[in-house]
Design a protein around this nucleic acid. Structure first.
Length: 598
RNA sequence: GGUCCCAUAGCUCAGCUGGAUAGAGCAUCUGCCUUCUAAGCAGACGGUCGAACGUUCGAAUCGUUCUGGGAUCACCA
């Protein structure tokens, strides 16, 4: 791995800020940090410096200050050729060759990622083995995978982890229902994917369980009593105890059904293009954490109640008292998470650890992090819950138990069918063979789906309407994929005509839309940094959209290969090649592939 | 009831570390394919930025209160 000590990339904005700082100290003997913003389209200039904040200290009127700074910059800065002042806004016009310089520095930039010396573990997906993945899991998977990619591009050493919830009462429910109603059905005999088969029996359990409750209520029990007393639930609880004791038959059934489910999950993961470096299984880790409870008691961070249960007082942190171990000595959810957090740290010693988990667990993670901080864990400050909002349907919340979910496999299949129809309608891929077509349809389907789920800020809940299929036009994945394909088409044609793409360009007069593109390309690192800081793929998605949109405006108005001035043509060739590369790079961070043609 | 999150155009969303006249897409309407891919481009229409106070030269952005929606406050995970 290469380590770059300094960022050698020329940064106009930084240099300009420094020049302004210099002007301020020369003119007014003040030392201010300088923030620049892009000049609004309706004014002349590239960067704007707002002088209002100086007014108070300098006791001069803003226009006067702005003019003075402008004059000084014009005299002393190599970058500034002219300026104009509107109220307190100093609009700076930069020297003409700045754009070719900026672009050449982009062309010659070192594209390897420089390691930032930090490591991070990202846990996501974390499915339950009693049901197949649904739309909510897709948001989770795409988010986790993308955040891992983004952090990696930002220089982190990233480990992708998955914690499979493969034990517990919910798994036993599927198992009981299978025992009772399964008649030896298998994925082979039924033709169902293993995860769907397990999910079927989870739903079966709930149906039968509800019937039992009705029956008990009919003979006079209250609903609450009936829920506790229903024989099926008793059986599931009994089965969990047997599982914990290691009962041979139960463990065998558990292994058999889980193996089916893993086959199903692996097929889904492969289809949606998601993977992990490490998989943890809760059946291996659910007993962890008890030693941490002991440690907490010794340190006086935890306390014991009369019934033997162990608690922590988090009222100082603005939280409540929280149970960390049951009176009978068995674990609760938080106990396990204390244990797995410790385990992950022992395994990887990462500087940061991220959980991609829905916002219904916000409180749980507040508590978890607060406890680890109180225990003085060195890694506590690096823990982060990437909380995301639920995906709701027009009919309300998705519930696996009641079967009111948008199944992940079904949705992907439907999207592929839509991609096929949409593409064939346009009739542009006649020369594709069968495999190439299949690959393209999948690429577009996943592009549409991933972009749809990732372009929204993670913490916002979102609505998915199955009746309205996901668009392929406008602000969508396929729009950006299409833009990439268009550029590739130009590059192919150039190659066929033996026109080389230059690696350095000479001075040439540029259109405004071309400088817009250079500006955007040059700005990419700041978007990447922001996305990494905020763990937010939506920032990358929106950047790609901006870039694609701007390119398409350029494309509609100007021609690359039909440009008669060869220096302009060469510049445009290099420019569009950079745009394509950036779109591919950005979409790569979202886990979306881009086609050569479509 | 306590705590946390969300509220921007008819719909889906950007913008939020305070800056100039709040931007896209979808939908509706008008133009643009004998020229590098029309999954595109140009334009029209559409806004009390949930409400009220406050801080500020300046608030969609910060603060307080309120309204609406969601989540959570289990010896479930």
């Amino acid at each position: 791995m290469r380590l770059r000590l300094r960022n050698r990339k020329m940064n106009i904005e930084k240099q300009l800020s420094a020049d302004i700082q210099n002007s301020l100290s020369t003119l007014y003997q003040i030392d201010e940090t300088v923030e620049l913003q892009p000049t609004r389209k309706e004014f002349e200039g590239t960067y704007t410096y707002v002088v209002f904040p100086l007014v108070k200290a300098l006791r001069k009127n803003p226009v006067e200050i702005a003019n003075a700074i402008g004059e000084h910059l014009k005299e002393n800065s190599d970058l500034v050729t002219n300026f104009n002042v509107v109220k307190g806004f100093l609009n700076l016009v930069l020297t003409k060759d700045i754009w070719t310089k900026m672009f050449n520095s982009l062309l010659s930039a070192d594209r390897s990622v420089s390691n930032n010396g930090q490591s991070v573990l990202v846990e996501y997906s974390s499915p339950n083995t009693n049901k197949p993945l649904h739309l909510g899991h897709l948001r989770n998977n795409f988010l986790g995978y993308s955040v891992a990619k983004i952090l990696s591009a930002a220089g982190f050493d990233v480990t992708k982890a998955c914690l499979v919830n493969d034990r517990g009462i919910h798994i036993c429910k599927s198992m009981i229902a299978y025992q009772q109603f399964g008649n030896g059905e298998t994925p082979e005999s039924s033709g169902m994917k293993g995860d769907h088969l397990a999910g079927k029996y989870y739903v079966e359990f709930d149906k039968a369980y509800k019937k039992e409750i009705e029956g008990l209520v009919a003979i006079g029990q209250t609903e609450e009593e009936a829920k506790k007393n229903a024989p099926l639930l008793k059986k599931a609880q009994e089965m969990l105890l047997q599982w914990e004791k290691g009962d041979k038959d139960v463990v065998e059934l558990w292994q058999k059904m889980n193996a089916w489910v893993y086959d199903g999950f692996n097929a889904t993961y492969k289809q949606i293009g998601v993977d992990f470096d490490k998989t943890y299984y809760e059946s291996d880790t659910y007993l962890l954490g008890k030693d941490i409870v002991d440690e907490g008691l010794e340190k006086g961070v935890f306390y014991t109640k009369e019934d033997g249960s162990v608690w922590i007082d988090l009222t100082e942190e603005g939280l409540d008292h929280k149970l960390v171990l049951r009176g009978d000595g068995t674990s609760v959810y938080i106990t396990q998470d204390l244990g797995t957090t410790e385990l992950k740290y022992k395994d990887y010693q990462t500087d940061k650890s991220i959980w991609v988990v829905g916002n219904e667990q916000d409180y749980h993670f507040q508590v978890l992090f607060a406890i680890l901080a109180k225990l003085g864990r060195p890694y506590a400050a690096g823990l982060y819950h990437l909380s995301y909002g639920m995906v709701d349907l027009p009919t309300g919340k998705m519930k696996s138990r009641e079967g009111t979910v948008v199944d992940a496999d079904d949705l992907v299949s439907e999207m592929i069918a839509t991609a096929k129809d949409t593409t064939e309608e346009r009739g542009k891929i006649a020369e594709f063979n069968k495999e190439e077509k299949a690959e393209l349809f999948r690429m577009l389907a996943l592009g549409a789906l991933k972009y749809f789920l990732l372009k929204v800020e993670p913490k916002k809940r979102m609505l998915f309407n199955p009746a309205e299929s996901i668009d392929f036009q406008g602000n969508t994945g396929p729009f950006i994929q299409y833009t990439h394909a268009r550029i590739k088409s130009i590059l192919r044609k150039a190659e066929a005509e033996n026109i080389n793409v230059p690696t350095e360009i000479g001075e040439t007069e540029l259109q405004e839309i071309e400088t817009d593109l250079i500006y955007l390309l040059n700005d990419y690192p700041s978007y990447l940094a922001k996305a990494a800081n905020e763990y937010s793929p939506s920032i990358i998605a929106n950047y790609c959209y901006d870039l694609a949109k701007t390119f398409n405006s350029f494309y509609a108005e100007f021609s690359v290969l039909n440009e008669e001035d060869s220096s302009k043509r060469d510049f445009r060739l290099a420019l569009v090649k950079e745009v394509a590369a950036k779109l591919k790079e950005g979409f790569g961070l979202l886990g979306i592939d881009v086609p050569e043609r479509m």
